[in-house]
Nucleic acid binder design. Structure first.
Lengths: 365, 365
DNA sequence: TTGTATGCGTTATCAC
DNA sequence: GTGATAACGCATACAA
């Protein structure tokens, strides 16, 4: 009475078995190149393979996972995929996972915490064996993460230090980055430097700021509080641009003297450059600007933006390797058990910064 | 002997049933709010729900799909996720799918055809009920698509017209876009216009070119072949920038006279702007530049780039709706059955184009 | 109002 | 060398 439905259903193992005249077990063994297939006659194998190909058989991954009790998938939950920051990160993850049997499943929370939660549930429901969280900017809803801990899914977050909650984290060394940015500007001769800091709730921002101050104090430079600004915490993460634009415009209106801008990130730098452009000031001739992150954007602007690169490809790769390793601990894990993974940033020199010209007075006359 | 393993396995329906003292069916019915749950005592429901919550029960989506014979997933296969073009597209897809029970599974082929194929197989293997292909740039491997047709999975491609292969396609009206771009430049007074066309293999490019010529012939403008360039087909899609940069530099070296550049896309426009910047020419004062696409980038440059926007959010949304609709045909499908969906582009005026100034002679002296 | 039995497509354990 | 058969976790028709 059953199974005669040729409706819209997929070709199954049983179908192939029937068509090839062998049992499902044999077919399964052959098609998977299982150890036992060594004992299967070459002819049989060939025949089965051919038949399966003809029929367009695609093994049902769901059923397979159920049976094998592994899904062979790793969830990648991105808080905001439109953040240029995470693109290379995804690439790093994918490239690392590609040669393995693990499949990344990418979900994007679109900046909505509820969505983040829902997708997290779905990922758990799909029995991902590991989880990579790409957390950028504000991302407060860590409560939901308790679920994960309950389900003992190995997890790694990248882009945010969650070690206080004992979650393994991969982040760039923001302090070193801030230090490097400041050092770069200083060594070019800049002293009157504007700081466009990120929202204060943001850990990244304060770390970078620490690095900046460390360098300043090392060389005995006083940071002018009148030149220090702070972005409001914005709901829309892309509005670093708006922030940079607004702050810089105000700065120009106030007719304060400065020769360089150190922006919290590249988007903010882009906003600052826009403000300068509107005011008719040229970068880098009239003012140097340095950013942070090295988003794809930074290289494509004119002038190209000097920035502190986060090694995003590497960070993605590392995150992927970390979860892979905690899924099946390979060999003796060197120091992979440690919680915080701090990657070194890199100064990328482009055209938006240059040596301070002799003439010191550059107040907008 | 069995099932007593408290290893690292998940909480199952049976576990909840055992713990709550009811049968798996009752638990299943309650937890799914199935029709039959109307007849279950309120107390029972509450008890079961509470228990399930406490135990951290997450239904196994794999097993569920198997049983229900729907995966409730839609595969989204992107040829190159780092292409800024596709970000908003993904957003459009996600937002449309979010309120439905369908889950998008995003995969990125990272520009590699083999990877594309592999992921396609995996998606089919995971029994996605629909497929959205985000095809940008060159993307020749349509052969693999025969698999999909075999499996009768509803499919929609966006960003490329594949209707010749009778695949439903969502694309911007490139011809209209080219026309609009040309019209914009012309109406600003520009006559000596440089054309930076895309690779000739690319359908988008030739359509845009058609639109350009149509406008030109309407107003009786002769297109100067010496000012017309064509990008080589490049393996790396991001190298539109390089192409624009190189072509424009050569152009400047040749000391040809021009007052505007119509670039095939925003990246190419950005490259052109860089070349102008390097040569010390200002945009838009010395030369207007118009792009195509309106990638996020375009708004953030200084000057902001005037461009022809592809309504990517809408395109994503439409694609998602189309596959949803062919999964379960809702009501009388108006004209959703048609193959080609052409969306209108929109001129976004920013700062990179302006009225041609009176002084005509602008050969680099 | 709740429980029992069966099937979904695979894999794995054992017999033959 | 190959073929039955029992899980895997869930949903559901049918019984009670």
């Amino acid at each position: 009475m059953a199974t005669r439905g040729t409706k819209s259903t997929h070709v199954t193992l049983a179908d192939v078995a029937r068509a090839s005249g062998f049992s499902t077990s044999t077919v399964s063994i052959v098609l998977n190149d299982a150890p036992l297939s060594r004992y299967v006659a070459a002819k049989t194998k060939e025949h089965i393979r051919k038949k399966a190909g003809e029929m367009g058989y695609h093994p049902d991954a769901l059923a397979r996972s159920l049976s094998r009790r592994h899904s062979q998938t790793i969830g990648v939950l991105v808080f905001d995929i439109s953040d240029p920051f995470c693109l290379s990160l995804l690439r790093g993850i994918e490239r690392t996972l590609y040669p393995t049997p693990y499949l990344p499943i990418i979900m994007d929370a679109d900046n909505h915490p509820e969505q983040f939660d829902r997708y997290l549930d779905m990922l758990i429901g799909r029995r991902v064996e590991g989880l990579i969280l790409v957390a950028n900017w504000l991302f407060a809803e860590i409560d939901s993460l308790s679920k994960i801990e309950k389900n003992k899914i190995p997890i790694t977050v990248v882009g945010r230090d969650l070690t206080p909650r004992s979650i393994r984290s991969v982040v760039v060394d923001n302090e070193a980055g801030g230090y490097a940015a400041m050092k770069h500007l200083y060594s070019l001769g800049h002293r009157k430097i504007v700081f466009l800091c990120g929202p204060k709730e943001m850990d990244d921002s304060s770390r970078r700021w620490q690095g900046i101050r460390r360098f300043a104090s090392e060389v005995g430079l006083r940071l002018d509080p009148r030149l220090t600004f702070q972005l409001l915490s914005l709901i829309d993460p892309a509005s670093g641009f708006e922030g940079g634009l607004r702050m810089t415009s105000e700065l120009i209106d106030k007719k304060l003297d400065f020769s360089a801008i150190l922006a919290f990130d590249d988007l903010t730098a882009l906003g600052a450059i826009r403000a300068l452009w509107v005011a008719g000031r040229r970068v880098p001739d009239d003012c140097s600007v340095i950013g942070f992150d090295d988003v794809p954007h930074a290289a494509l602007s004119s002038p190209g933006i000097t920035t502190i690169r986060q090694p995003m490809l590497d960070m993605g790769s590392l995150a992927a390797n970390l979860v892979l390793d905690s899924i099946n601990p390979s060999g003796r894990t060197p120091a992979k058990t440690k919680l915080l993974h701090l990657l070194p940033p890199e100064l990328i020199q482009r055209d938006s910064t240059q040596k301070l010209l002799r003439r010191a007075a550059r107040v907008s006359s």
